[in-house]
Amino acid sequence: MSHTAHIPSHRKPRRSASKMALRAGVAGGVLSTLAVAGAAGTANAAEPVTETVELPTLTADLSAQIAQSADATQQTADSYEARAQQEAAAAKAAKQAAKDQKAAEKKAEAIKKAKAEAEAKRKAAAERAARSTERTTLSTSSAPSGGSSANQGSNSSASDSSNVSAPSSGSVSAVISFLRAQVGDAYVMGGTGPNSWDCSGLVQAAFKQANINLPRTSQAQSTAGTPVSLSNVQVGDILYWGGAGSAYHVGVYIGGGKYLDAANPSKGVVIQDLSGYPASGAVRVL
């Protein structure tokens, strides 16, 4: 026996064949993997991969469809524009028509007004002529009288009343006829008929027969019409005593220098002569 046999050997123990084969296989696999990876990396480095998107090819049909769509869009736009132009033209025409209609109505109204004014003037002239004729007739039919008593006035009114024409609405004769019919009625302060009167109440009622509404008091009646001088007084004019606007008595001129009034409680409604009791002024409402 060797003298070193008892000393453990420093040499590595031998590996078994199976272990060595296993290790060799693992190493070979690793090397194979690395080789493949390296080859792939080399290939990738040599030829970089890029992504390519293929565009669709425009065929004849697709081109026609696109052209048709563009034409349709243009036609729609043209249609909208044409419609907008038509609507604008229609609105302008309607506005002009309304303006023309308004001008025509205004012109027609002016013509109508002018005709109405001409007719009113014609009627007024005819009424003035008729009243002038009535005043002339009524004035000449009144018999002259120098007295101013109530009895003389009553006798005169009785003889003159038959000469007055039948009253007509809106005429002087309607006023005079009404006044003559009240001769002999009583005078009562504030009286407005039918059988008793004061001076302004009688005058107001008389002119109502001619469709004229006079104010109630003597003061207001003295300024109710157009002032006329006593030298130009006509039948149907209102006579007043006192100042215009402050008159204390009124009567109506009936022609022939006479007037009719509700005089006072002692006389009642009578016809009197102006020479015996001259008026202060006169106004004309007819």
Rank of each mutant, 00 (worst) to 15 (best):
Q96H: 02
A77Q: 13
Q96E: 12
D78V: 09
Q68M: 08
K95D: 14
T76I: 11
A97F: 00
K92T: 14
A97E: 08
A98C: 00
A67L: 13
K92A: 15
A98K: 12
S79Q: 11
D71I: 11
A94D: 13
A91P: 02
A88C: 07
K92Q: 15
A90M: 04
S69Y: 08
E87A: 14
K92L: 12
A72C: 04
A72N: 06
Q85N: 12
A91V: 03
A94G: 04
S69V: 11
Q85Y: 00
Q75H: 12
Y80I: 15
A89N: 10
Y80W: 03
D78R: 07
A84N: 03
A88G: 09
Q96F: 02
A90D: 09
E87V: 12
Y80D: 03
T76L: 12
A91E: 05
D78Q: 15
D71S: 14
A94N: 05
T73I: 14
K92R: 12
K99I: 11
A67K: 13
E81L: 12
Q74G: 11
Q85T: 10
Q74R: 07
R83L: 11
D71Y: 10
S79P: 05
A91S: 00
S69E: 05
A98F: 01
A82W: 02
A98E: 15
D71Q: 15
A91W: 01
E87L: 10
A82M: 08
Q68H: 10
Y80S: 05
Q68T: 07
A97C: 07
A77M: 08
Q86I: 01
A82Y: 03
Y80M: 09
A82E: 10
A67E: 14
A94T: 01
Q74M: 08
T76C: 07
D78F: 04
K99C: 02
A93N: 05
A94Q: 13
A84I: 01
Q96P: 04
A97L: 11
E81G: 15
A93K: 08
A90G: 04
Q96K: 06
Q74D: 12
A77K: 13
A72M: 13
A88R: 10
A77D: 07
A89H: 06
T73F: 06
D71A: 15
D78S: 10
A90W: 01
A67N: 13
A70M: 00
A88D: 09
A84T: 07
Q75P: 08
A70F: 02
A94V: 08
A70E: 14
D78W: 00
A91N: 01
Q74F: 09
A97K: 02
A93D: 07
T76Q: 13
Q85V: 03
Y80V: 15
A88V: 11
T76P: 03
A89L: 09
Y80N: 12
K92C: 02
A89G: 01
Q75W: 02
Q74T: 15
D78C: 05
Q96V: 01
Q85F: 00
A67F: 00
Q96I: 05
S79C: 06
Q75C: 05
K92E: 14
A72P: 02
D71V: 14
R83K: 09
D71G: 13
K95V: 10
Y80Q: 14
K99R: 05
T76Y: 03
Q96C: 03
Q86F: 06
A94I: 04
K99W: 01
A77V: 15
Q86T: 07
A98R: 11
A90N: 02
R83I: 11
T73R: 15
T76H: 08
